[in-house]
Amino acid sequence: MPLTDIQIRQAKPGERPRKLSDERGLFIEIRPTGAKLWRYRYKIEGKENVFALGEYPEMGLADARAERDKARALVKQGRHPSHVRRTARARQVLEGQSSFKIVALEWIGSKTGITDGYRGQLTRAFTKNLFPYVGRLPLRDVTSAHLLECLRRMERRGATYYAISLCNWLSQMFRYAVRTLRADADPAAALYGAFVRDPVQHSRPMSPEDMARFRRELAGYGGFRTNTIALELMQLLFLRTVEIRRGRWEHVDLDAALWNIPPELMKKRRRHLVPLPSRAVELLKELHTITGARGLMFPGLRHPDKPVDGSTFNRALERLGMKGFTCHDFRATASTHLYESGLFRSEVIELQLAHAEDNQTKAAYNHAQYLPERIEMMRWWQDFCLDCQ
Results as ranks from 00 to 15, higher is better:
Ala71Asn: 02
Phe27Asn: 03
Gly158Arg: 08
Ala280Asp: 01
Pro205Asp: 12
Met297Lys: 06
Ala163Ser: 10
Tyr42Glu: 04
Val93Cys: 03
Ala334Met: 09
Phe384Arg: 13
Leu296Phe: 06
Ser171Arg: 11
Ala356Gly: 08
Asp210Met: 08
Ala125Thr: 14
Ala145Asp: 15
Asn129Gly: 06
Cys327His: 00
Leu94Ala: 15
Leu258Gly: 02
Leu287Asn: 07
Leu351Asp: 09
Arg204Val: 12
Gln7Trp: 00
Val134Glu: 05
Val50Arg: 11
Glu67Phe: 04
Gly78Asn: 08
Ser82Gln: 08
Arg240Tyr: 01
Met59Gly: 00
Arg39Leu: 00
Arg216Gln: 14
Gln7Ile: 02
Ile44Asn: 01
Ala190Lys: 08
Gly223His: 07
Ala363Pro: 14
Leu37Asn: 08
Phe51Leu: 07
Ile261Tyr: 04
Gly117Glu: 14
Glu58Leu: 13
Asp69Phe: 05
Arg18Asn: 09
Gln382Arg: 11
Phe238Met: 06
Thr289Ile: 09
Leu130Glu: 00
Arg294Phe: 09
Leu287Pro: 02
Glu373Asp: 13
Gly46Glu: 06
Phe384His: 15
Glu149Pro: 02
Gly96Ala: 14
Lys268Met: 12
Tyr118Lys: 09
Arg31Asn: 11
Gly109Met: 07
Phe51Cys: 03
Arg24Ser: 13
Arg345Gly: 12
Gly54Glu: 00
Leu231Thr: 02
Ile108Arg: 04
His80Ser: 03
Glu217Ala: 15
Phe174Gln: 06
Gln10Tyr: 07
Asn366His: 13
Asp69Cys: 05
Asn49Met: 09
Pro262Val: 02
Leu233Arg: 01
Lys285Gly: 15
Glu347Arg: 03
Cys327Glu: 00
Glu376Tyr: 06
Asn168Gln: 15
Tyr42Gln: 06
Lys323Tyr: 12
Leu147Trp: 07
Gly117Arg: 14
Pro32Gly: 10
Arg39Glu: 01
Arg197Phe: 02
Ser207Trp: 05
Ala66Val: 14
Phe195Lys: 04
Asp358Met: 14
Ser207Met: 11
Leu105Gln: 10
His328Tyr: 01
Met322Cys: 05
Phe344Gln: 05
Ser311Asn: 12
Glu149Met: 12
Trp249Gly: 08
Leu105Ala: 08
Lys101Asn: 10
Glu264Gln: 15
Pro372Cys: 07
His80Gln: 05
Tyr40Lys: 01
Asp387Arg: 15
Gly300Ile: 04
Thr361Asn: 14
Leu20Asn: 00
Leu166Glu: 02
Lys268Pro: 02
Arg216Glu: 12
Arg197Met: 07
Thr312Gly: 01
Leu276Ser: 03
Lys12Thr: 11
Gly109Ile: 09
